[in-house]
Simulated assay, not measured.
Amino acid sequence: MFLSVIIRSFAFTSARSSFSNFAGMDKPTLRLGVVQSGAKDDKKENLKVAREKIDELVKKKCDIIVLPECFNSPYGTDYFSKYAEEIPNGETCHFLKEMSSKNKIHLVGGSIPERDGQHLYNTSTVWNPEGELICRHRKIHLFDINIPDGIQFQESSILKAGNTITTFAAHNWKFGIGICYDLRFEELARLYRNKGCHVLLYPGAFNWTTGPLHWELLLRGRAVDNQVYVAGVSGAYCPNASYQAWGHSSIVDPLGKVVTKAQHDEAVLCVDLDMSLVTKVRQQIPVFGQRRTDVYETVEK
């Protein structure tokens, strides 16, 4: 089943309009597209599916499109080395460069297994409408968990962790990126808010143990804590895969409201983000200025 949703995010109702605050902004609203696709043991087929989904969102006039974690590869330690590519010279990067420049969009390449010398990373790349690579984010927190009768996984057995936080600008909106397990660490989201981000993007692949428990809860928590839009961009459920993604890609507004979400299957989502809502929430519930930085502080090292 394929799901296609387009919805407009509404403003927090009890405030006066502050559109004049955005007179110098390129886009006081920004159309965000999210792809939820499955990944088979066939890179060319995975890129074909990604192309189809991007084309679908381009027809909806999205300004920025985000792909899921490991969109070109099955997710699993047995696959990372086989599918790994150098950035920006690999097959997948050439595909992302083409799709961003041809369609004149910002394109966030979810994540792919990256090979850099002897090391492998789980890496997201961001491409501007000219087809230029403007940044990459290497997953900072590796997915090492052991839940008896649930799931056991150890990314660190083959991947190396990144050690930098990543922001980029699109149409004067500022974005921060985390990959999957990065979502669990509020400190990272706080640093992005400190850096002025309006939107946090989390390509991910929560599973059928942690997904029902925590996926939406964490997305809403990051949004409320930091008064930002948050997009959780999951892979779709693939019945024959060794790792089963939970799906349920979601876009959450700065009030913590789930504006739209998918189910398990392949889908595209499209939402108009509203900068006035970000401003109103921050003005009306001004927790950022009320933090006791004389007592505690979150700092980048």
Rank of each mutant, 00 (worst) to 15 (best):
T293N: 14
C135L: 08
R190K: 15
F22A: 05
D294K: 07
N226D: 05
V35G: 01
T293L: 09
V108I: 10
E132K: 14
L133P: 06
N146T: 09
G211V: 00
N146K: 10
G90R: 05
K174A: 07
K97A: 04
R31F: 03
H137I: 03
F153K: 11
L159H: 00
K280G: 08
R291D: 12
G117I: 04
R291N: 11
Y229P: 02
Y229D: 04
I147H: 07
F22T: 06
H214T: 15
N46I: 03
T293M: 14
L183R: 03
R292Q: 09
R282A: 11
Y75G: 06
K44V: 13
P286T: 11
H106K: 10
V258Q: 04
K160R: 14
V299F: 11
W127K: 00
E300A: 12
L273A: 01
G232D: 02
Q118K: 13
I65A: 02
H214V: 15
F185M: 15
R184E: 14
V34G: 00
Q290G: 10
R220E: 08
P239C: 07
S156F: 07
G211E: 01
I54V: 10
H171I: 11
E85H: 02
T260V: 11
I6V: 15
R291L: 15
L96P: 00
C135Q: 09
N194T: 07
V278I: 14
T13G: 11
V66D: 01
M25S: 11
D144N: 09
H198N: 12
I251L: 06
P74W: 04
G38S: 08
V66I: 10
S124P: 11
G235K: 07
I87P: 00
L269F: 06
D116H: 10
D253S: 06
H137N: 04
Y121G: 01
T29V: 11
T279A: 13
E114Y: 05
K60T: 06
F206I: 07
A23T: 12
Q283K: 13
S101P: 05
K174P: 03
L3S: 08
F2H: 15
N122T: 07
Q152F: 13
R138Y: 06
A245E: 10
I54N: 01
V34T: 02
E98S: 10
Q284L: 12
L159Y: 00
S249T: 05
I7E: 14
S276H: 09
L191N: 04
S242R: 12
Q227W: 04
H94Y: 12
H198W: 12
G196A: 07
R222V: 06
N172Q: 13
I147T: 09
I65L: 05
V199A: 05
N240G: 14
E114V: 04
S249G: 04
R222D: 04
F153D: 08
V271M: 05
E91M: 12
